[in-house]
């Protein structure tokens, strides 16, 4: 089927609208001049050097990476465990739990941040990267649970029963059958958690105390001056999730190479 030309143009314009600002930001990061205006004055890495030399930036990047990695790992663990309870232990209270586990999706991050700050202050815990991570976990776990639950529902219970029947105990069944079938979904969900955590700013602002994360660093920097180093930071912000995504893809590929035919849960029903 051929699409009418005007439609193609509209979609093209939409894509340009979405990506042009990103492209502009990345291009200006490599500009040697110190103003954010055309014409560009030449190609240079001076803003990257400037940014990398800034201890404030380095601390913020380290903090962001730390929080994002812990958030991704934590959500993968908690999300998988919750998905198991929700899918494999069906009962009325569990169904209610599933509903509640999804509710935070509808809460505005502003509210989550403010209420977390109140709770943290009331319980006398000092604000730190720890409290930031907790905030991110609260916000992102519902999404992860949804992804892993959907995947686990598609894993035929009969596969686990077949493994038990063939001599595997409950743990071995999980390790050799359920987990390999869940891995792509769990990795994808962890990636989502990482990407979310890495550029989250609302909840972070409420819960961070003295430590600064990368998004907070950019905002505070912009309040002082606007120069192309902002673009260099934004480019880094853009690259990190991509690198994480590439890493995740490589690891999944490897696990696929070890175990062919992923995805087709239910066991080769092709006739």
């Amino acid at each position: 089927m051929r699409f009418p030309r005007p439609l193609v143009l509209v979609v093209g314009a939409l894509i340009a609208f979405l990506y042009a600002p990103v492209a502009v930001a990345v291009v200006f990061a490599f500009n040697s001049g110190s103003t954010l205006s055309v014409p560009l004055q030449g190609l240079s890495l001076r803003w990257f050097r400037a940014v990398l030399a800034d201890p404030g930036f380095r601390d913020a990047l380290t903090n962001s990476l730390l929080v994002a990695v812990v958030t991704a790992g934590g959500t993968a663990l908690i999300g998988t465990a919750s998905a198991f309870v929700i899918v494999r232990r069906r009962s009325r209270p569990v169904a209610a739990l599933e509903g509640f586990s999804r509710l935070p999706v509808m809460l505005p991050p502003l509210l989550i941040g403010a209420s977390l700050l109140t709770t943290i202050a009331a319980s006398g815990v000092a604000l730190s990267l720890m409290t930031v991570t907790v905030g991110h976990l609260v916000y992102v776990i519902p999404y992860v649970v949804v992804v892993v639950v959907a995947r686990l529902r598609s894993v035929d219970l009969e596969l686990e029963q077949a493994a038990r029947d063939l001599g595997a105990g409950p743990l071995e069944t999980f390790r050799r059958v359920t987990l390999p079938l869940l891995t792509p979904a769990v990795l994808g969900a962890a990636m989502l958690a990482f990407a979310f955590s890495f550029d989250e700013i609302l909840i972070t602002t409420f819960t961070s105390g003295l430590d600064s994360t990368l998004p907070m660093f950019i905002v505070s920097k912009m309040r002082r001056t606007i120069d192309p180093s902002i673009n260099a930071v934004a480019t880094v912000l853009l690259l990190v999730p991509w690198i994480a995504l590439a890493l995740a893809l490589v690891t999944t590929r490897r696990s696929i190479a070890r175990a062919p035919a992923p995805g087709s849960a239910g066991g080769g029903e092709s006739a």
Partner: peptide
């Protein structure tokens, strides 16, 4: 098993 239940991975 009726529907084979082969391990797809």
């Amino acid at each position: 098993f009726q529907r084979y239940a082969l391990f797809p991975h």
